[in-house]
Design a protein around this nucleic acid. Structure first.
Length: 426
RNA sequence: GGAGAGAUGGCUGAGCGGACGAAAGCGACCGCCUGCUAAGCGGUUGUGGGGACUUAAAUCCUCACCCCGGGUUCGAAUCCCGGUCUCUCCGCCA
C-alpha cells in the first residue's frame, strides 16, 4: 500500500496515477473520506484516554494515602463507558480506512510510459528470430497429443477444463524444466532455493496484494480461510513478513518452484486452447528484497536472469515494458518476457518482472535496518517468473518440432531428461 | 483429535492488579579514563498511530503495543473467556 501521509499530501498525483493505471479513482475519494472520519474520532477518544490515565493515576495515589476516591471512580466509570462506545466506533472507522487504503493501487514509476491501453507498451529488445519452417508447423496441442506428452481428455476428467494431465516424456519434460531452471538460478545467478507451501493465509494474500481486491480470482478453502497460491511470489515474498532484516544482508535473492492456481473466471474461450491458459500450472519464481536505492538496478538484473532461461533454451523472445494502463495493481514497473511460439504464431507471456518498491513491503511490513540502531525502513520487493512452464513447454514443442513429427530437446535440458535428445514420433 | 506446559524489548530473563514501556544481565551506541586488540566508569538504547511546530529533519504533546481478539476493573503484562503458535504426552496418519 501507499503511505497514508503521502496520499494526504499528494492527492492529485495519486489520483492521476490511479487513472493512468486505468482504475477507478473513486477508491481515493473513499479513502480521503474514511481517513478524515477516522482521524477525527481517534483524536477525540485519545483525549478521553489521556484523561482516564491521569485520573486513574490520582486514584492510585489517593488510595495509597488513604483518601476517599469514590467521586473520581464514579466519574471515571462514565468516562470509561464513553471510551468503550467510541472505541467500537473507531474500530469500524479504522477498518474502513484500512480497506480503502488497501484498494489504492501502487503508483507507476516515472520511467513507465503513461497510456491507457496496451498500445503504450514498448518493446525494449528482442533476442533471436522466429524460426523459418519448410513445412507447416503444428500447434502444440497436436504435437503433444501425437507424441503422448499430454492427455487432454483425461486431464479434464480430473479437474475439468483447464487442468492438464502430462504423461510420459511430457511429465518428465516438466520436471526437467523446473529442475534445470532452479539450478540455473541457484548455481549461476546467486539465488537461494526455497520450497514454500502451496496454500497461504489471508495475511499473506494481503501482503502481496491479492487481497482484498482479487479474492474471487483465487481458489479458496473457506473452512480454513486459506487460499491456493496464484504464484510462488505470495509465499516467497511473505517469508519475511513482519521481519526487520539486517541491511548488510540485502539484497536477498530467493527462488522456488510451485504449483500456481488461477480460476481465470470469465476468461473462457479466449486463447485457452491447449496450454495457453490453464487453471493449474508449474512456475519457477525469483523474488528479491532490496534497498530502495538499488531496486531498479535489481529489476534490470532480475529481468536478465529470466531472459537467460529463454536464451539457454534457444527460444526467441522479446522484452516488453508495460505502460501504466497494462500494469498490475501492485507494480511500479514491469517488464514482460514474451516467448515466440511457431505453431500458434504468437508471442506468449512467460514472465512478468516487476518492482513493487515498498508497496508490498508496507502491506507485509517487511523492513530493514541500515546499521545497528538505525531506524527500520521498508525494503523494496521485486519478483519475476523464471519462468512459467506451460507456455515455455509450448514454445519448445512448437519451435523445436521437425518435419517427421519429432521434437528436439534443447541441449541444456538433456542431462535432466536422462540424456534424451529427441522425442521421437511414434 | 485429546491432555498438559509455555509465548515478555535485539537476545537471556524477572514481574502475576496501581509508582511498569516494563527489573537484572548480555549485546549495541555515545562519552570518559587507561601508553598500546583488554578492563573500568558514566550515559543512551523498542515499534507504530494521531496531533503541534518546521520547507524538512530534530523536538514536543498524546494514544496504543508484554502472541492475537474479546471481557472484568476507576486502573490489566498481571485476573477471566476465545483463538494462534511452540514444546511434551496420547490418538490418528502420508
Amino acid at each position: 500500500m501507499l503511505d497514508p501521509k503521502y496520499i494526504r499530501a499528494n492527492t492529485d498525483i495519486v489520483r492521476q496515477g490511479i487513472k493512468n493505471k486505468r482504475m477507478d479513482d473513486a477508491v481515493l475519494d473513499e479513502f480521503l473520506g474514511a481517513d478524515d472520519l477516522w482521524r477525527n474520532a481517534i483524536t477525540e477518544v485519545d483525549a478521553l484516554k489521556a484523561l482516564r490515565n491521569t485520573v486513574s493515576e490520582q486514584i492510585s495515589q489517593m488510595k495509597r494515602s488513604g483518601e476517599d476516591a469514590t467521586a473520581e471512580i464514579t466519574r471515571m466509570r462514565e468516562v470509561s463507558n464513553r471510551i468503550k462506545e467510541m472505541d467500537a466506533e473507531v474500530r469500524l472507522l479504522e477498518e474502513r480506512f484500512q480497506r480503502a487504503l488497501l484498494m489504492i493501487p501502487n503508483m507507476p514509476h516515472e520511467s513507465v510510459p503513461a497510456c491507457q491501453d496496451e498500445s503504450g507498451n514498448v518493446i525494449i529488445r528482442q533476442w533471436g528470430e522466429p524460426r523459418a519452417f519448410d513445412f507447416t508447423p503444428l500447434p502444440h496441442w497436436e504435437i503433444a497429443t501425437r507424441l503422448g506428452l499430454i492427455d487432454f481428455e483425461r486431464g479434464t476428467k480430473i479437474g475439468g477444463s483447464g487442468f492438464i494431465l502430462f504423461t510420459g516424456l511430457g511429465a518428465k519434460l516438466q520436471r526437467a524444466l523446473f529442475n534445470w531452471m532452479i539450478d540455473l538460478h541457484t548455481e549461476t545467478q546467486g539465488y537461494t532455493e526455497v520450497l514454500p507451501p502451496t496454500l497461504a493465509n489471508r495475511d499473506c494474500m494481503i501482503g502481496t496484494g491479492q487481497l482484498p481486491k482479487f479474492e474471487f480470482d483465487m481458489y479458496r478453502m473457506p473452512d480454513d480461510d486459506l487460499f491456493l497460491i496464484p504464484t510462488a511470489e505470495v509465499p516467497i515474498t511473505n517469508v519475511y513478513r513482519e521481519d526487520i532484516l539486517d541491511g548488510a544482508e540485502l539484497p536477498i535473492y530467493l527462488t522456488g518452484h510451485s504449483k500456481c492456481f488461477r480460476r481465470e473466471a470469465g476468461a473462457a474461450g479466449k486463447d485457452t486452447r491447449g496450454l495457453l491458459r490453464v487453471h493449474e500450472f508449474d512456475k519457477v519464481e525469483m523474488v528479491k528484497f532490496a534497498t530502495p536505492e538499488s531496486s531498479y538496478d535489481e529489476l534490470e538484473k532480475l529481468t536478465q536472469n529470466g531472459e537467460e532461461v529463454l536464451q539457454q533454451l534457444g527460444i526467441p523472445y522479446r522484452v516488453k515494458l508495460l505502460c501504466t494502463g497494462d500494469m498490475s495493481f501492485s507494480s511500479a514497473k514491469t517488464y514482460d518476457l514474451e516467448a515466440w511460439a511457431s505453431g500458434v504464431e504468437q508471442w506468449l507471456e512467460v514472465s512478468s518482472c516487476s518492482n513493487f518498491e515498498f508497496y508490498q513491503a508496507r502491506r507485509a511490513n517487511i523492513r530493514f535496518r541500515r546499521e545497528n540502531g538505525g531506524k527500520p525502513e521498508f525494503v523494496h520487493t521485486l519478483n519475476g517468473s523464471g519462468v512459467a512452464l506451460p507456455r515455455t513447454f509450448v514454445a519448445i514443442l512448437e519451435n523445436y518440432q521437425q518435419a517427421d513429427g519429432s521434437v528436439i530437446i534443447p541441449e541444456v535440458l538433456r542431462p535432466y531428461m536422462g540424456g534424451i535428445e529427441v522425442i521421437e514420433a511414434k
